[in-house]
Computed example of a mutant assay.
Amino acid sequence: MNNNSNSKHLFLSSFIDNITNNLSRSKNNYQYSDSVKRFAPLLYILGGKLTYELVRINLVGALPHLSTLNKLISSTDLSIKEGEFQFDRLKQYLNSTDVQFGFASEDCTSVIRKIKYDVSTNSFIGFSTPLANGIPIAQYYQTDSFEKLKDWFSTINKAPLVNIHMFQPLPSICTTSSSPFLISAYSVDNTFTANDILRR
């Protein structure tokens, strides 16, 4: 318990030091400690944009601007690409949590139909992902042609659903519980067959 208390005080001390140091700098020269760089995305993800901005504006110099935060998030290798299965990351996660067994699940949920451009993969997300033997074809909608994009918008439906594959680790004697792991996510229009599901 003493170590846990010390680590809490260590972060608090680092957070306050960060604010103090930034108050003596110009706004465009703020710098942030590693602990603040790890804390900022968590606050943004768990609290949302409005909460993050409320804290950032009222605690001057405490948190990076949203543009800097977006760079921090995109520089981490935590993003998933539509239709790709993350088995290597799953293996790393299971090794890090010392878990050997678990169960996988697949489910669909409805989403707002919209098309987005993914800069990192140079592809469009939101069209129904085609399947090959039940497996989604990752980054299928890549093009540099405006005519091709126009054709997709007129002939291919925007997906009303996102299909996700999750893995829930089963805790061992050494571990109490582990968070579920997202293996894959991709847009679908619910036209796949029972054979597609069996092949997956």
Rank of each mutant, 00 (worst) to 15 (best):
S172Y: 00
N28Q: 14
T193R: 04
A194N: 14
S35P: 00
N190R: 08
F15R: 02
L149C: 10
F85P: 01
I45K: 14
V36R: 01
I173W: 08
R89S: 15
G47T: 04
I19M: 10
S110N: 15
V111K: 02
K81L: 06
P171K: 05
I156F: 04
T51M: 04
G126T: 08
K116S: 15
S123I: 03
L46P: 01
S120T: 12
N195S: 14
I173Y: 08
N70E: 11
G102E: 04
L94K: 10
K27I: 08
M1A: 11
N58R: 06
A138M: 00
N22Y: 02
S14L: 05
V188P: 00
V55G: 02
V60K: 14
N58F: 05
I16K: 05
E106T: 12
N95I: 08
F146R: 09
A104C: 12
S96G: 13
S120D: 12
F85C: 10
Q92H: 11
C108G: 10
S178M: 12
N2Y: 09
G48P: 03
S145V: 03
T143Q: 06
S154E: 15
T175F: 00
F181E: 03
P64N: 01
F192E: 11
R113Y: 02
P169S: 00
L69A: 05
D34S: 08
E84D: 12
I164K: 01
L63P: 03
S172P: 08
I156W: 03
N28G: 07
N95H: 12
Y186A: 09
E53C: 06
S24R: 13
K37M: 06
L182D: 06
N21R: 07
N157V: 10
N6S: 09
E53Y: 12
Y52N: 02
V188A: 04
H9Q: 14
N190H: 06
F11L: 13
L66Y: 01
A40D: 01
S179P: 08
A62M: 02
C174Y: 13
R89L: 13
D144N: 15
R113F: 01
D98I: 14
F127C: 02
E53N: 12
A40G: 02
L59E: 12
F87Q: 12
R113E: 12
K148Y: 02
K114Y: 14
I135E: 11
D17P: 01
T51S: 06
R25E: 09
S187A: 15
S128Y: 08
G48L: 04
S7Y: 08
F87K: 09
N2Q: 05
H165Y: 04
L72P: 00
